[in-house]
């Protein structure tokens, strides 16, 4: 059984494709992410101080001259860089690259809160727990038992819903099969009403994400920095994107 677990594990390279043409900027992914990953709501004041806690956010750009403006949206999350700027700067190896999942991990119990990683992240994808935020009732009953509730002084970021990846792998192994395309869906992709977010295995050339990555519209955010992002955006009909 463990053989099967290990064999599969080495082939997977998780990736995500976000089609900006059909993203409507509805924030359903942001909400789903917060619910799945026990992210506290910090409130307006803290948000204004720049202490907002969102693993995923919608960047909005205005297109055109006022008053004929139309909004453009780009969901921004941790790009799970293949060559991540956050990793080498951590003094305690709290953020490191998983050899198995090939994503960036954040190990909360190692983190000492230097915030160096967040300052080195070109995507501003990392958020810091400035306080122990109280989760008011009845929201405290909605906490996801699969995910750690982080405490003050710990850095956190999108994990590609690694708890779902681990669960999917365990499930597949218990059923004695390999992980199939579509077995694992992160919370954002699951919640997206227009199916703009697709998640899958990039090392499998036949998976949905691999096919979409080969599209002409595909670009990666800040690719010129050499970060090798695992999130690919598909350009919309308008002018945004690389």
């Amino acid at each position: 059984m463990t053989e099967l677990l290990a064999k599969e594990a080495h082939d997977e390279k998780w990736g995500m494709v976000i089609d900006l043409d059909i993203c409507s900027g509805c924030q359903a992914c942001v909400t789903a992410c917060s619910m799945e990953n026990n992210i506290p709501f910090v409130g307006e004041d803290e948000m204004a101080y720049g202490r907002g806690m969102q693993w995923m956010r919608i960047r909005r750009y205005w297109e055109g001259e006022y008053p004929e403006v139309t909004p453009d949206y780009q969901p921004m999350l941790c790009q799970q860089c293949g060559s991540a700027p956050c990793e080498p700067v951590c003094p305690v190896f709290a953020t490191l690259h998983s050899e198995v999942e090939k994503i960036n991990l954040q190990v909360y119990n190692r983190c000492i809160g230097t915030r160096y990683c967040a300052n080195n992240c070109p995507y501003h994808a990392r958020t810091f727990n400035w306080f122990d935020y109280e989760i008011p009732a009845p929201m405290n009953s909605y906490l996801n038992p699969d995910v750690t509730v982080r405490r003050r002084g710990v850095m956190e970021k999108c994990t590609f819903c690694v708890q779902r990846i681990v669960k999917g792998r365990q499930q597949a192994s218990a059923e004695g099969r390999e992980i199939e395309d579509g077995d694992i869906t992160p919370a954002c992709a699951q919640a997206c009403p227009t199916d703009a977010i697709t998640f899958g295995n990039l090392s499998d050339p036949e998976s949905r994400v691999s096919k979409m990555v080969r599209s002409d519209r595909a670009y990666k955010e800040l690719e010129n920095l050499g970060t090798e992002p695992r999130v690919t955006y598909l350009k919309g009909g308008k002018s945004y994107g690389g």
């Binding site: 053989e3 080495h10 198995v100 999942e101 991990l105 119990n109 994990t159 690694v162 681990v166």
Partner: peptide, 19 residues
């Protein structure tokens, strides 16, 4: 003890237990 070195890559991965 219970795994081969290849399996141990998964079994010693941080994401196996910490997330």
């Amino acid at each position: 003890k219970m795994s081969t070195p290849e399996e141990f890559v998964l079994l010693s991965d941080c994401a196996t237990c910490h997330y």
